[in-house]
Nucleic acid binder design. Structure first.
Lengths: 230, 230
DNA sequence: CGACCATTTGATATGGATCAAGCGATGTGG
DNA sequence: CCACATCGCTTGATCCATATCAAATGGTCG
């Protein structure tokens, strides 16, 4: 099956020529391109830790293939996911000297790593690099603010918002391949997996989406979802 | 009464020599000091809008006295407060070309305003200015991430976290003068005013705090509050 | 085929919202 | 100087959205 093959090549680790992703500001794929030149490429297995909370923030990371998440786990086991990073996205700059969140591979992933000091020292000499670094940070800030905003919405609003966000970042708008399990979505949205599941079912019953497989979501009526996010 | 006088001078608009605030990284009061030199000072009445959502983000702002909040109001009237800014804090850089949140004065406030283009062009020439701009953005990002983290906690955790955060920024740790009404706290924490009120009462019953006046909070047992935030 | 894991589905519990007074300051006009 | 209105806050009673608990189902891989 054609789509299944695409899915496999994109998410399962046998990445064949990391696809250029659509619907993404050019700057994001292009800025800090130098990272790929100077950085080292590393592979991570599913759920492998990329860095831990409180570890010194010595590196920046760029997703080549696969997907990463940042998160904070609390004593009682509750977990908040800070963000998901897809191919082309850069992460690890969220902080001062040490990481405030840990990072893990959602699925088998290739990540390019570069010393933070190199970037910062480059930014100290090259005004363009400095500007790129700032742009990147600003983008991260906007994303975080946006995330913050949906945490005081209702469950349907959160899930609809998540789907629309993923659709914008997806290779083909209108069809989403989710790299992450329901638990990750739940922890990102501050809901239980059961509620996430029920909301998806509800959207499907309203024929706003179709669910050919748990990790595959087809957006049928974008307007219905948009109407939900208030 | 001594403390009452301090309160008045700080929050009521007859600001006498904006106090240097304690417990705050030096960089925060010092960075972008130039703003005060080149910027224009403006006064805002209580609840006056400083800028609106979707307005072009042409300026940066620094609180001289008083307090500001950023927020987003939804169709149904629900409101999420993004952050509070106290004297010395800079805001308005959260975004790209237009503000994603609006900003208002919490109480009568003096705000210094500087053209964003000026700052950005300065940063384009001066590597130090660029670095300061980046530092400021990073700090904002960290604050936002931290805020994000408490939105999936329980009500007591959120309120305790808020008190500890305010205490750290307060002039005198151990005694907090809140510039904002309960509704603002509720909208910042994603709770109802009733719940905020009940949590405060609960902390008072546990003698973790004292409430000599609604806007005045004395921290008696910091450890109890810290224990609550999990 | 069988075991395991992720997901879905159903039943019940609960934290916090909402609804509805009451209360205490602050300010205003008589 | 005091009655009274107003506003912000608190308190109590009830309700509801979502969590939690408990199976059942389905998909994947050895």
């Amino acid at each position: 099956m054609l789509t299944e093959t695409a899915f496999e090549s994109r998410w399962s680790g046998r990445e064949s020529g990391q696809a250029t992703r659509k619907g993404f500001p050019a700057a994001c794929n292009d800025s800090m391109r130098s990272i790929e030149l100077i950085g080292a490429s590393m592979s991570f297995r599913r759920n492998a830790e990329i860095y831990g909370e409180r570890e010194p923030a010595d590196y920046l990371y760029k997703v080549v293939s696969g997907a990463a998440r940042t998160c904070k786990v609390r004593l009682d086991g509750r977990r908040q996911i800070g963000a998901f990073y897809l191919p082309g996205d850069i992460f690890g700059l969220e902080t001062g000297d040490e990481h405030t969140l840990s990072a893990e591979a959602v699925i088998p992933s290739k990540i390019v790593v570069i010393k933070r000091a190199t970037v910062i020292s480059l930014a100290g000499r090259d005004i363009d690099a400095a500007h790129q670094l700032w742009t990147l940070t600003t983008r991260e800030l906007r994303r975080t603010q946006n995330h913050l905003l949906f945490l005081n919405k209702t469950a349907p609003e959160r899930v609809a918002g998540f789907l629309l966000e993923m659709a914008e970042r997806a290779e083909f708008e209108g069809e989403i391949e989710l790299p992450m399990p329901r638990q990750d979505i739940a922890d990102y949205l501050g809901l239980s997996i059961e509620t996430v599941s029920r909301m998806l079912r509800q959207f499907e019953n309203a024929s706003a989406i179709a669910l050919p497989a748990p990790r595959r979501i087809v957006l049928r009526k974008r307007a219905v979802l948009k109407g939900l996010i208030a």
